[in-house]
């Protein structure tokens, strides 16, 4: 069946079963590959996107349930030529190692900062616990979130 999604402000139509996880609709249906598959069971956060501005695990969101929402992916919050503040902080702190989990980390952190512009370490702990990184970039993730918060505050 055909579904129309609003992804990064653009209307996109794709033909896939309605119970297909949004993750695979984005990746295999729309070829938006910045969102990653890590576990398929909402245990790693690599697939994190925003639905109406809130971080969700796209591996647990059915395509048909995403219809009518504003979907934002890593490609939608900034571009190499025009980085979002959170991405600029990631670049400044040279956070990524393998980089595979970082789209999810950034989307989770962006959602945190939208909700709480001055997060404490405890706030960061609570928000980021669901996002796994096997390379061990956590110290730099924490530093980058604080740095982005400071910059966004101006």
């Amino acid at each position: 069946m055909a579904y129309t999604l609003t992804v990064n402000g653009e209307s996109k139509t794709l033909e896939m079963p309605g119970d297909t996880p949004l993750l695979w609709a984005l990746r295999d249906g729309l070829h938006l590959t910045g969102t990653k598959y890590g576990c398929g069971v909402a245990a790693c956060g690599a697939c994190t996107v925003h639905l109406d501005g809130v971080a969700v695990r796209s591996c647990q969101t059915a395509l048909e349930d995403a219809v009518g929402t504003q979907i934002t992916t890593i490609e939608g919050i900034g571009t190499p030529a025009a980085l979002a503040p959170i991405q600029a902080a990631w670049l400044e702190h040279q956070v990524a190692q393998c980089g595979y989990c970082q789209s999810g980390q950034i989307m989770q952190a962006a959602s945190l900062l939208a909700e709480n512009p001055t997060p404490t370490d405890a706030d960061i702990d609570a928000a980021m616990e669901g996002n796994l990184c096997r390379c061990g970039t956590y110290p730099r993730i924490r530093a980058a979130i604080h740095s982005a918060a400071a910059k966004m505050k101006g």
Binding site: T33, G34, I74, E75, L83, L91, V95, A96, G99, I106
Partner: peptide, 20 residues
């Protein structure tokens, strides 16, 4: 600055599964 960093913070870095 790492050469792979910009791609990795913007979702544009290509891993194996991202090649279409």
């Amino acid at each position: 600055p790492r050469k792979d960093m910009l791609g990795k913070v913007t979702g544009t870095a290509q891993f194996t599964a991202d090649i279409r």
